[in-house]
Simulated assay, not measured.
Amino acid sequence: MSLPGLLRVILSAAVLLGTSGAMIVMAADPAATISQKGRNFTPDDITVEKGDMVRFVNDDFYGHNVYSETEGADFDIGLQPPGEERDVVLEKLGIVDVRCRIHPRMRMKITVTE
């Protein structure tokens, strides 16, 4: 893991851990920012490095619940009110399928590389 990635993990000591390779965090600068608006993720396909933080921003007028059930990279940020930001650190290599529990047609893909 790179030094910046390691620092993000250390800074995230007070995190809510998913059951495996993803952490929900509340600190540091993200490698990517995903907007939720109009029942869509923008962008809907990104690539990040292992240990990078992805920020989900609710730019909509209603709540969202971003989650992934991808094995080894599962997370659930819970109900996210309008205007709120939530961060997730992805540690498992591969493709992470991301969705919204409230709006089932909202989908995006995150590719995690070395």
Rank of each mutant, 00 (worst) to 15 (best):
T19F: 01
D59C: 10
K37I: 14
E84L: 05
G83H: 05
A31E: 05
G94I: 08
P104S: 06
Q80C: 09
V98E: 04
V25I: 15
L79T: 12
G51W: 09
P104Q: 03
T33G: 02
T33D: 02
F56S: 02
S68Y: 09
C100I: 02
R55D: 05
A73S: 15
K50A: 14
N40A: 15
L17Y: 04
N65T: 10
A27D: 10
D74M: 12
D29S: 13
P30C: 04
I34F: 06
R39E: 14
I77V: 15
A27M: 01
A31N: 04
G72W: 08
D52H: 12
N58W: 03
N58S: 09
R107K: 15
D60W: 12
L3D: 08
T33H: 02
A14L: 13
V9Y: 15
N58H: 09
K92H: 13
R8D: 15
I102F: 14
V88E: 07
D52F: 07
K109Q: 15
P82C: 03
E114N: 15
T113E: 14
G5N: 14
M26N: 14
D76H: 09
V96Q: 03
S35W: 00
E71Y: 12
H103S: 10
E91G: 07
I110D: 02
D97C: 01
G38E: 11
Q36K: 06
T111L: 02
I24P: 00
A31D: 04
K37E: 11
K109L: 14
L93Q: 12
D59P: 00
E85S: 10
I10N: 02
T42C: 06
F61H: 06
P82R: 00
G78W: 05
I10S: 00
A28C: 07
I24K: 11
Q80F: 00
G18R: 01
M108S: 05
I95K: 13
I102Q: 03
V88A: 11
P43S: 10
I77K: 03
T47E: 14
P81L: 12
N40V: 11
V112N: 02
I95T: 14
V25D: 00
K109H: 04
Y62I: 11
N58Y: 07
N65W: 11
E69F: 08
M53C: 09
M53P: 00
V57I: 03
S68N: 08
S35L: 11
Y67V: 07
T19Y: 02
F56C: 03
G94Y: 10
L93M: 11
H103I: 08
A31G: 05
A28S: 15
A31H: 02
V15C: 14
V9S: 04
G38Q: 06
G21T: 03
G51I: 04
N58I: 06
S35T: 07
A27C: 13
I24M: 13
G94K: 08
T111F: 02
